[in-house]
């Protein structure tokens, strides 16, 4: 149900520019206004989310650990699984952000004969996750050729590696296919793994369909329904230099692709995809497990009114002495009291 709803939403998103830019010729709306708005929403929304997270107090140190905490010197400390210092946390974060280490632990849960629950290794989520994120990164970087003139050399080098198969003309770029394939796998996983299907919401399916549509229209435009790339770059360079212009004669498939990408940008800060920023601010990952060494003050503790022993003694010293209770700080020595104290001390 959630999948159908999301699929319908993406179909509507395909139709909006098809009608708006295709039939109604609203080229400056779909080529300039909407992309600018989407980028503004993306940047402001994402920064707003991150600052919002930054304002949330973390009352306890809550790193998720699965290794030996730093303890006595002869007990082997698991540095990555239970980091104790900032440096170890940094290493753990690097591995998480670049290699998705927590997905590597993904398990398959199945029922064995006799209603036993068994767990097995399942690395496909990790593999598809890596394939998806890295190919998306390369596809994203490759698009810099539309926003820089001349294009940085590194982009050309990336593209020549990406097209190393030299199939067809224009060259087949591997990352486009990998991106589509990996997203499609992530979608199939939600459909065919019952536990995952049970917890999947429209908000889980929608980004998958949206990215599939983006990759699909992108490849369609490169390999089948060609567009005039020089005019496209004229438009995109106009956006990058804040001198927008809309050349005539760009076919509607380009506006569809651009609208879907704008949707992704605008939707980003409000969706699960905001883990782009969130991964850095997860207290279960970015805190050190050093509670035995460093006191973690709860930031929302209000100032407690305390009455220390020193203040107590100051208040009641005379009475304490009168009652014969020992005091830490002796009262100002007076001539006649001196012998009494000495005798008390001897006792």
């Amino acid at each position: 149900m959630g999948a159908l709803l999301s699929f319908g939403a993406v179909v509507v998103l395909l139709l909006i520019p098809a009608i708006g830019a295709g039939a109604l010729k609203l080229h400056s709306l779909f080529g300039v206004v909407i992309p600018y708005l989407a980028v503004i929403v993306f940047l402001v929304g994402l920064i707003n989310r991150v600052i919002g997270w930054g304002k949330v107090p973390v009352p306890f140190k809550i790193p998720t650990t699965c290794g030996q905490q730093k303890s006595l010197p002869w007990i082997k400390h698991s540095r990555l699984e239970s980091p104790a210092t900032g440096g170890e946390v940094f290493l753990r974060m690097v591995l998480e952000v670049l290699f998705f280490r927590s997905l590597f632990r993904n398990l398959r849960t199945e029922k064995a004969p006799g209603d036993r629950v068994v767990y097995g290794s399942s690395k496909w989520l990790w593999v598809a996750g890596l394939a998806f994120h890295y190919s998306f990164l390369i596809v994203f970087l490759r698009h810099l050729r539309f926003f820089k003139q001349p294009t940085p050399k590194i982009i050309g080098i990336i593209e020549s590696f990406d097209g190393f198969l030299q199939i067809g003309s224009p060259h087949l770029l591997v990352t486009g296919l990998v991106l589509f394939g990996a997203v499609f796998y992530l979608f199939l996983r939600r459909i065919f793994v019952p536990q995952v299907r049970y917890i999947s919401l429209p908000a889980d399916y929608f980004p998958l369909f949206l990215i599939m549509a983006i990759a699909g229209t992108g490849m369609l435009m490169r390999y089948f329904l060609r567009v005039d790339i020089i005019k496209v770059k004229e438009l995109t360079m106009g956006l990058a230099t804040f001198h927008p212009k809309v050349p005539e004669g760009i076919s509607v498939i380009f506006y569809i692709h651009l609208f879907l990408v704008s949707t992704l940008f605008a939707y980003f800060p409000f969706s699960k995809m905001v883990h782009l920023g969130g991964v850095f601010l997860s207290p279960t990952r970015n805190l050190a497990n050093n509670t035995r060494m460093v006191h973690h003050p709860n930031p929302w503790n209000y100032p407690v009114k305390v009455h220390t022993y020193e203040e107590y003694e100051e208040e009641f010293r005379d009475k304490m002495i009168a009652a014969g209770i020992p005091v830490e700080k002796q009262p100002e020595p007076r001539e006649e009291e001196q012998p009494t104290e000495e005798s008390e001390g001897k006792e």
Binding site: K148, E234, A240, F242
Partner: peptide, 16 residues
Amino acid sequence: ALFPFYSNIGKADIKP
């Protein structure tokens, strides 16, 4: 994120 924008400042006269 803003690289395409600030690195293109003053390059509005690039003609196709």
